[in-house]
Structures are given as C-alpha cells and as structure tokens.
Design a binder for these strands. Structure first.
Lengths: 133, 133
DNA sequence: GTTCTTGCAAAGTTTTTGCAGATTG
DNA sequence: CAATCTGCAAAAACTTTGCAAGAAC
C-alpha cells in the first residue's frame, strides 16, 4: 500500500462521483503516474473492496471510493446530454429481487442499475443543434 | 433494407437472447458478411427501433430483436459463472422512477437494469475449479 | 536482498472510419 | 444513374500484459 496508490485514493476522496481511469490519470500530478498503473491500482482496490466499479454504458469503467461503514452499493441518474450525475438513494426493491432469485433458483443475486434522462439545465435547449429556446 | 441486413435479422429471429456483434458475425454464413458491416447494421437497426441493445458488464454490446407490439424493454438474470441468461418480466417500479425523475427534475428518464447471480447448474460446483457440470 | 510495484512499450479487444468497388431501385 | 451499402484495411478507444528497472520492508 504505497506510492501512486495513495495519490489515487486522494483523488477519489475529493470526488463525489465515479471517475474513469483516464480521468483519474489526468487528475494525478502531471507525469506522475502511468495509465497502466492506474488500471492495475483500480483492479486491486476493487478486489480489496475499497472502490466500487460503475458502468454508464459508454465504453469506460468508472470507480468511486467506498466510504467507511458503507458497501458502496447505490445508483446514479445520468444526463444523456451533458453527463451530469446525480447520486440516488433509491434501490431496486429487495423483495422483488428475492422473488426473482427464488423463482429461478439463482444464488448470490445482485444487480446493476443506472438511470438516464435529461437534466434541468439541458431541457429546452433543442436537440443539441440549434441555439434553440 | 437488403442483403446482409436480412441475414442478420434472420439470425436474431432465431435467438432467444441477446448476441454480441462477434457472435452474430460468427453465426452468419461463413465468409458472408464483414464484421464492420455487422456493426453498421446493428447501429442502424437500433436507430430504427428494430433491435435493442443490452450491456452485461463485460465490454461487449449485445443486441436482441424487438418483437411486434413490444418496445423491447426488459431485463435479464445472468449467471456469473456460465453466462446462462434468463429473461425477466419484472421491471423497476414506475412510481419510484417517476419520483426520482420528479425530485431531480429530469425528463425522459429510463433505466438500464441487469441481475447477476449463480444459476442452479453452477451451484455447489466449487469456485470455478472443479469439473463443474 | 527479496518481494512487490512501476514505467514503458507492445499487444489484445471492441468499435469506428475512409474509401473504392459493388449493389440497389 | 444516383444513392446507398459492403468489404477491406487502417485507426481509435479502452484495457491488459511482459519485462526490466525501481521502491518498500
């Protein structure tokens, strides 16, 4: 547990939302840490449960620090226009998930869930082209 | 609407579960269609609403045919050991999603949701070592 | 000094793009 | 014939890996 790892954890601690490896790399002191090292660090940190991986459907993994006394399981609302992120407290109802698991006899069932929509700031701004409004 | 496109739709029609572009390519008549053409066809078919994209968290997009009178929105239960897939009828409760959208003033909110677990056949077969059935 | 980690560069996957030739209507 | 589509090859984006030099204890 040393060097670049600490720097990465510091970056994550200062962030409210998940970051891609490229973003983490960009935020690290210039020329400080190699991108491959970031990938390796995140894989390790995730295995240790210190970090949680999220997937917003663009082809890049995102990581968020898991805070003390929390398992890190939660979901996000992502703006499909500006990529704004809102962290949510709602989760998929446990009873329904239990029913699904039981009916199909699956064990250790979990889920991945993210919401997408258009945030207030991006509404009424046309489809992205015209200077609409 | 012609050639390779028809062949791809036929492949999808015969499948109960989503396929990756590579799988579709593999299922097409040998040497028949180029992989890049599959990618382009799937992008078009999705834009036309004839196909729906899913993401199981491995880095590959999957596509499933949208049947008549259906919007194609549904979720899956995926075995993390053997990749078996079960199609689900359950969905995230609309009232809760509406509440989330309202509270954060997002419009056109949708969600991506997939479940993961260990299927009956893979249970009790060790952590992946034994000659599982 | 032994072990684990890092940087660098090369390679692997998945997906996208340019362009000329073939296909469609 | 005009418009679109396909194959091929190159490239892009994200991620993984090998290996020798470096850091940690």
């Amino acid at each position: 547990m040393t060097g670049p790892r600490a720097a990465i954890l510091e970056i994550l601690q200062a962030q409210a939302h998940p970051l891609t490896n490229a973003e983490i790399h960009r935020l690290l002191p210039a020329g400080g840490v190699n991108l491959a090292t970031v990938y390796r660090a995140m894989a390790l940190l995730e295995k240790l449960g210190m970090v949680k991986q999220f997937d917003f459907g663009d082809g890049a993994a995102r990581y968020e620090l898991v805070r003390e006394g929390d398992d890190g399981h939660h979901h996000h609302l992502v703006c499909t226009r500006c990529a704004a992120i809102v962290e949510l407290e709602e989760c998929f109802p446990v009873e329904i998930q239990a029913r699904i698991a039981a009916r199909h006899q699956f064990q250790a069932v979990t889920h991945r869930l993210e919401f997408f929509g258009i945030c207030p700031a991006c509404q009424g701004a046309g489809t992205g082209m015209g200077g609409g409004q």
